[in-house]
């Protein structure tokens, strides 16, 4: 076997692979092809046959390991145990893990168990003459760093948008693997609670519409949600609106919230203070709607509409809907 073995971890929600997992499958396939190696995607969790089949559309080799991730053992512990068993039987030169909460936990556990190096927050993974190059946006995008492993391989935690998921054109081979013995954990999940009306995740939405203090109240977010809906995107907000209780923490963008990179970020009534900026400044296109033409966000937006967001946003939503038909 000439080239490297690249193993990608696929996560599942509702029996189907997450968008990020499909991106990892594509990434593994692309990296393997470029280096004459081979790509394997490990599907670990609770999935439907259709779910695994979908992954097989994106990668040449798929391992299907069924494991209970909604039981009393935390999902990351379950997945880590199965992944360790896979790594024992399949020498992987590179392990790609999704940058989800569980993914990061899994990476941390596996890295410690097998004494493996880890590169986190990958926005891009490619080969160079020096070997693997992992591109990260450090300090919320103020710096782009390119890093690699000093020798051999390791684990790379990959963020949404590192590549565009696309079907490989062939159907990959699926091997069902008998799961290793279920793991016991001293940590027990007592219950899982869903809060009413949980919002669309901003983690990998292509279009994010964010509201800041200028929205002036939970009611004001109605127009923001409507615009997000017109685009088929997600609603986000600044720390101030989360602290005020108008949005949940899962929708907070910024230094102590999430760092996201949608193709389009529309910020309405957002001043653009540094703590928020570091969460979204690497977005593809940034549009700001603000009454204040001197707000900091003007310095790093691509398009600025000076005006009252309550006048502009509803009109924009209508225009987007008309355009999309």
């Amino acid at each position: 076997m000439a080239g490297p073995t690249i193993l990608a971890l696929a996560e599942f929600a509702g029996g189907e692979p997450t968008r990020l997992s499909l991106e990892l499958a594509t990434l593994a396939t692309e990296l393997a092809a470029a280096a004459d190696g081979h790509a394997v995607v490990a599907c670990i969790g609770t999935f439907t046959a259709a779910g695994v089949a979908e992954v097989a559309d994106y990668a040449p080799e798929v391992l299907a390991i069924e494991a209970e991730t909604s039981g009393t053992v935390p999902a990351a512990a379950v997945i880590a145990a199965q992944l360790l068993a896979i790594l024992d039987r399949t020498t992987a030169d590179l392990v790609l893990v999704p940058a989800s909460a569980d993914g990061k936990d899994v990476a941390g556990i596996v890295a410690a168990r097998r004494d493996l190096p880890v590169l986190v927050n990958a926005a891009g993974v490619s080969w160079s003459d020096d070997g693997l190059v992992v591109e990260m946006n450090a300090f919320g995008g103020r710096l782009i760093t390119r890093s690699g492993f000093t020798s051999g391989g390791g684990i790379v935690i990959v963020r949404p948008g590192a590549t565009t998921a696309h079907a490989s054109g062939a159907i990959g081979r699926v091997e069902t693997v008998t799961p290793a013995a279920p793991v016991e954990d001293r940590v027990r999940v007592i219950e899982r609670l869903a809060t009413a009306g949980a919002a669309v995740s901003i983690d990998d939405a292509q279009v994010v519409v964010a509201g800041g203090r200028g929205v002036a109240g939970a009611d004001g977010f109605g127009v923001i949600e409507d615009l997000a809906d017109a685009f088929g995107g997600a609603v986000a907000g600044t720390r101030a609106v989360v602290d005020a209780g108008w949005l949940s923490y899962a929708q907070q963008v910024g230094q102590t919230g999430k760092i996201i990179k949608p193709a389009l970020y529309i910020a309405a009534g957002v001043s653009g203070a540094i703590q928020h900026k570091v969460g979204m400044q690497t977005s593809g296109t940034i549009v700001a709607i603000n009454r204040d033409p001197d707000a900091p966000i003007v310095d790093f937006a691509d398009l600025v509409i000076v005006g009252d967001l309550f006048e502009v946003v509803p009109r924009l939503a209508a225009a987007v809907r008309a355009r999309r038909g």
Binding site: I144, S147, F149, Q281, T282, F300, D302, L303, V306
Partner: peptide
């Protein structure tokens, strides 16, 4: 160190904003 920094660069500069008034 098991990882190393190969290079650092500032992000590509954004062209200035188009402002609509």
């Amino acid at each position: 160190a098991t990882t190393r920094v190969l290079g650092v660069s500032p992000p590509p500069p954004r062209a200035g904003a188009t402002v609509l008034r």
